[in-house]
Amino acid sequence: MKPDVLKQLNEDRAAKRPVVLATNLTSGDQKLLYQTDAEGQSEVETGARAVFASDKPATIETVDGPVFLNVFNPPLRMIVVGAVHISQALAPMAKLAGYQVVVVDPRGAWATAERFPGVDLVDEWPDDAMEQLQPDRRTAVVTLTHDPKLDDPALAAALKSDAFYIGSLGSTRTHAKRLQRLERLGFTEQDMARIHGPIGLSIGAKSPAEIAVSIMGQITQDLRQEAA
């Protein structure tokens, strides 16, 4: 590997720029490809497009021999709105599953480092927080406050983003009311179908930790089964 390739690769990863490192396994020749390159029609470009989407590296056969495409997508992120009990269980689970976790709660007494060790905490209102955090297609957004003042602005921002998962805590009835409020903000039924509500897989979860498992399971399902 040429030192400048390694340097560029590390810079791209630091800047959260998705990048594919293509390595010819016979010659060792290497090249970095970006999403704009992956619009082309060559074997390597078509392959790069596939590994960007699946997030799984692959080897392709080319006229110059086998080429390994290693994909470096930005890290998965989870934005949790509401520093509540369920979040305390969900945040460490998400970290173990490889997510960078951010907990948003403007209520100072809730989002404390003691309750959320090792988690990024943002004590701003969800609309400001979402503006800063810029959810992308590697981001899951979970709202857990039960409070429309906090949940709704976060959901509105999430719906305008490419977040791969949006989920909101609340009963079927609470969720129906929530959808009515979002409709008044101009969201269509099709937009709102992206929100999982009631949140989580239906596994009969009762305790905060069990609900966190059902949410983590549903997020994993959306992440992995959509791409497959």
Partner: peptide
């Protein structure tokens, strides 16, 4: 770098 795996290889490709 792991470039190919078969069976129950312990670490994934990449």
């Amino acid at each position: 770098t792991v470039v190919t795996t078969w069976g129950s290889a312990p670490r994934p490709v990449g």
